[in-house]
Design a protein around this nucleic acid. Structure first.
Length: 379
DNA sequence: CTTGATTCAAGCGCATGGGC
DNA sequence: GCCCATGCGCTTGAATCAAG
């Protein structure tokens, strides 16, 4: 056996210095490797000083990469050293084996890097299934945590920066996502969607030549202040989105010109009333708006004031007024979008530096509503 | 110097809830 | 049904202290 151990040592820890294999035992599906550290000294993680004064030792059981399809557990005896530096806060410290262990680590570094590679390639659930096949099973949460703990990769300053908002919790918490439009890769995430935050981020990257954004006033202001040298353009998605909304509302306004479909004699007639709504039954948005409309009317009927209802819903008073005047939720919804056409609005389209849409048309992120739709220019 | 007991904190798996 | 964030409780390593 003594002749085999050096070969096992070379096989199992060829890239690890300071570890000596003492025995290898196979129990069913588990390979248990007993090993110990051999270094005479270790550096204190607190002060960085070397110490050779041993305080004690204990066993650690880091999981390792599988061997021949069997789970491998290393029974590693590590020592605790006494830190002899008087100014150091630590009295003792445990030694770590470079490229094998880390503080609080329950896996060897090579197993950790393998799991990171699986996580990066397959992400949570698929990655977890793959680790089962690789005989190193971990949960999907563990893979995601490993990826999250990686340092952020260095990203070059984009020439064309895409700016849009994202939601951490829909209707409540919004942030800003920045994308390199040319490589189509995300560059950074900002914790909010404030003009100041975006302006600071852009000002730190003077190489940006074009800012591609939606028409939110806080993005317009942030881009104008932070990257005055950059050309600001509207992104394609919002142009199509605005166009689609405009077409939808135009058709709705002219619905009176549409000839009614001849009633089919065999179909039940009681369905005629719900069909008057442009929203499909069961649609989440439609049901939510109908419920909101009914609740607002109920509260007003119960004697609550409109400002009080507005506070309870986290809406502006104008929105409550529109709902209170509307006989149906559908009327309230479209009144909410169409009755605001009094001030002149800009058409969607390329935006020059310094230009910004009318700020009052886009409510601030107050944590009360979901992302509002953009107002449409009057036809 | 060694050993054992104790406490604290990090790592981990699981359950749950919200959003889509 | 899937994805993701979050919280909870358990396990285990780190750190400290006391006793032999």
């Amino acid at each position: 056996m003594n002749e085999v151990l050096p070969q096992l040592n070379e096989l199992l820890f060829s890239s690890v210095e300071g570890v000596l294999v003492e025995s290898v035992e196979v129990i069913d599906t588990v390979v248990r490797v007993e090993a110990r550290t051999t270094a005479r000294r270790a550096t204190c993680p607190g002060c960085g000083c070397w110490s050779g004064r041993i305080h004690g030792s204990y066993l650690r059981f880091p999981r390792d990469l599988p061997t021949a399809g069997k789970f491998v557990v290393v029974s590693l005896r590590v020592r605790r050293f006494v830190c002899e530096e008087e100014s150091c806060e630590r009295m003792t410290f445990a030694e770590q084996v470079r490229s094998l262990t880390r503080r609080f680590g329950r896996r060897t570094e090579r197993l950790r890097s393998t799991l990171v590679a699986v996580g990066l390639a397959l992400a949570g659930r698929a990655g977890a299934r793959m680790t089962d096949a690789l005989k190193v099973p971990v949960s999907r949460n563990t893979l995601l945590r490993l990826i999250a703990s990686l340092p952020d990769p260095a990203t070059p300053v984009p020439r064309v920066a895409g700016v849009d908002e994202y939601t951490q919790r829909k209707g409540r918490v919004y942030g800003t996502v920045l994308v390199d439009v040319e490589t189509r890769r995300p560059v950074d995430l900002l914790p909010d969607r404030e003009a100041d935050t975006l302006a600071v981020w852009l000002a730190e990257r003077p190489g940006i030549e074009i800012v591609c954004r939606d028409r939110a006033p806080f993005f317009a202001e942030g881009a104008t202040r932070g990257a005055p040298q950059a050309l600001q353009v509207a992104d394609r998605w919002h142009l199509w989105h605005n166009l689609g909304e405009a077409a939808e509302k135009c058709v709705y306004r002219q619905r009176g010109c549409l000839r009614p479909t001849p009633a089919q004699p065999e179909e039940p007639q009681e369905e005629a009333e719900p069909a008057a709504s442009p929203w499909p039954t069961g649609h989440r948005f439609a049901e939510r708006t109908r419920a909101k409309h009914a609740t607002i009317h109920a509260l007003l009927a119960a004697g609550h004031s409109k400002p009080s209802v507005a506070r309870q819903f986290g809406m502006t008073l104008n929105t409550i007024l529109r709902f209170s005047r509307a006989a149906t939720a559908e009327a309230g919804r479209f009144a909410a979008n169409h009755n605001r056409s009094a001030p002149a609005r800009r058409q969607p389209g390329p935006l020059r530096a310094g230009s910004s849409p009318t700020p009052t048309l886009y409510p601030k992120a107050t944590g009360s509503s979901s992302k509002p739709s953009w107002p449409i220019a009057p036809s």
